[in-house]
Each structure stands twice: as C-alpha cells, then as structure tokens.
Amino acid sequence: MQSNAGKAILSDPFSDHFEVGVNGGTLQVARAGPPPEASAAVVLAAHGVTASLMTWRSLARVLGDDVCLLAPDLRGRGHSAELPGPYGIAAHVTDLLGVLDATGVSSAVLVGHSMGAYVLARLAAEHPERARALVALDAGLPLPPVTDLEDTLEAAVANVIMRLSITFPSAARYLEGWRAHPAFADAWDEDIEAYARYDLALNGSVARCVCNPAAVRADTEELVSDPVTRTALERVQCPVYLLRAERGLFNEPDAALITAADLRAFAAAHPSVQIEAVPGVNHYTLVMGAGPGPRRVATAIEAATGTIRRMAG
C-alpha cells in the first residue's frame, strides 16, 4: 500500500484479534500467520512489564508465513488493562496457559521479552509439556537474591510507576514524548508509533498510559523478590535461546541490561543454551522497528522450530 506521497504504509501484520476467557474477564490476543491448526509451528509471545501485544508487530512481519504467532496483552496492560487482580507472575502463567488451551495448542515455542522472559521461563519450568522451546529476549537470566530487599523494591517500583503517572495535555504530546525517547529517536517507524498509540488513554484532553499501576507494581515486586520467578530459567528443560541487546533501555552503549560479564558467566554454566549478543540494538529495538533486531529474533525462532522438527522426526 502506498500513501499519496509515495511512502510505503505498513499493513497490520495481525490477521485476527480475539478474546480468551480468564479469571475475572477476558484477555485480548492478536494472531499473525495461519491459525494454529494450519501452521508448521506456534509461537506464544509475552511482552514486558509496561508494554503490550504491539511489541510484536515488527517481529510478526518477518516470521515465516507458516508460523502462527499468538500475542496476548498481559493482565493489566493494553486491552487487558481492566482485568482485576490477583496480579503477579503466577497469574500471567495461568492466563497464558488459558490462551494455549483456548486455541487448542498443546505446546508452543515460548518467546518472552524483558519481564515476559521470566513469565515464560516459569511457564516452561512448571509446565514442561507445554514448552517446545524458550526464546528469552534481553532478560531471563537467574537473578541473585537482593541484600536489601526494601530499598531494591522501592527503587524498582518507583522507577516504573513514575513513568505511568506522567500525563500529557494531548494525544499528540503523548506521542511526542515517546518519539523523544532515546531508544526510539533513530528508529521511529509506523510499528513503533502503533505501539505508542495502542497504550494511549484519553480522559478529556489528558493523555496517559493505559497500564494498570497495581498490576505493574505486583509484577515488578515479584521479579525482584520471588526466588521461584528469579530462578525459573534454571529449571527449564526444553531448548533455550537467549538474545542480548548490545545497548540499554535508553540506547546507552555501556548499560546493557545483561552485562557482558553476566552473559559470559551464564554461558559457561549453561553450555546447552544458544546465546547471541545482537549488535546495534537496544532493549526495545531488539524486538521493534525496522532494524536488525526483529530479524535476529525471527532467526532464533526459526532455529527453535527447526529443533522441534528434528526432535519430532
């Protein structure tokens, strides 16, 4: 499709949007690719702590035509923002099992970005029969116990909730705020704009992020404090693929969420895990935008589905 100016307009990569009944209401799910029963492989994707299913638009464009991508809005986010508690990682695992059950998928390749990597690592660890492989994106490494839990919790939660409390005088100013984010300044495209617009809530002329702060708080606290969640990857039995972004949340060259030292230590202790450090991308552009990140993720998924076929054969 072309605009009047001749610039290409990206089509919506999601061919279907549907709801899945879960505790307290319904979970919004988007699908790209063929239905599960007509696909060569099914991918279940989980986004980050303040993100949404729109995280996966760019990836959906570069996955193979025979791959079914199921991308839910996690409880308290996106079009699932009105779902009530209880919140927390265990609630997400239950919700995602509900997505698999509702779509008739016995097992899937699990792909998690940021917090989503911990959610799906826990699903894979506790329900190994549902996990064909796990692809963890810039997160998921076992976290050490914190020495000062209260201070760590306060800092982690405050940083996340503060962003959600910011309001803007218009939708345009809300989008300008996202476009000025250092992670997107040189990568902004229609998929990233669609990601920003999707979480926009308007009350009169006041714009804010639709994420439920109570859900974000519960999930963040659990990521920091719960040993079952922090160490879930240690108990995953299926093949694991780990991709690390070279740059940080704000595109900083020396602030990767997974440090090079931590990556080396993890690789040495887990030789069976397929690890890739992706250059030229930050925490967000590893999965979003027109850069190399989404294609590297798609390649890892293709490797995971290839493992499935070899094992099945």
Rank of each mutant, 00 (worst) to 15 (best):
G306N: 11
S52D: 08
F184R: 08
A215R: 04
A245L: 04
V43G: 10
S80I: 01
M1V: 12
Q28E: 13
R310E: 11
L137Y: 05
G48A: 07
L44P: 14
V67E: 02
G112S: 10
R235V: 03
G6Q: 06
G85Y: 04
V49T: 14
R77F: 00
L97R: 14
T285G: 08
E246W: 04
R296I: 00
L63E: 00
V22Q: 08
Q237M: 03
S11L: 09
A269T: 14
R296E: 07
A117Q: 06
T94G: 03
S107M: 02
V135D: 06
T220F: 04
R247N: 15
E193K: 05
E302S: 14
V216G: 05
D65Q: 14
G33P: 12
A303K: 15
L97T: 12
I192R: 10
A245C: 10
T26Y: 08
G78F: 06
L59T: 03
T94C: 01
V228A: 11
R163W: 06
H127F: 03
D191V: 10
N23M: 13
R132C: 01
V206T: 15
R179E: 13
S272A: 12
E302A: 15
V111P: 12
P34G: 10
V240A: 05
R122Y: 00
D191N: 14
L27T: 12
L10W: 10
L243H: 13
P182A: 07
V297M: 08
K7W: 06
A91P: 09
T259M: 03
C209I: 09
P84S: 02
A260D: 15
V206K: 15
S11P: 15
A312C: 14
V273E: 08
G21D: 14
F14N: 11
R208F: 03
C238H: 09
A180P: 10
A214V: 12
V135P: 06
I275E: 07
A172H: 13
P227M: 05
D16R: 15
G291R: 11
H270D: 01
F168L: 05
P84V: 04
L263W: 11
F250H: 14
N282F: 03
Y118V: 00
S165W: 00
I308F: 03
A46S: 15
L134E: 01
S15Y: 05
A245R: 11
H47K: 07
L63I: 02
G112F: 00
G76S: 05
A255K: 14
I258A: 04
R309A: 11
C68M: 00
L97I: 09
I301A: 04
E234T: 14
S205G: 11
L149G: 13
P169N: 04
W178D: 06
V22C: 11
A5G: 15
M288E: 08
V111S: 06
F250M: 10
V135F: 02
I161P: 10
Y87A: 01
L223P: 04
L27S: 10
T167Q: 12
G280Y: 02
E193I: 05
N212G: 06
R296S: 01
A171L: 01
G25D: 09
L27F: 13
Y241S: 13
W188A: 06
L141Q: 07
A304L: 00
M311T: 12
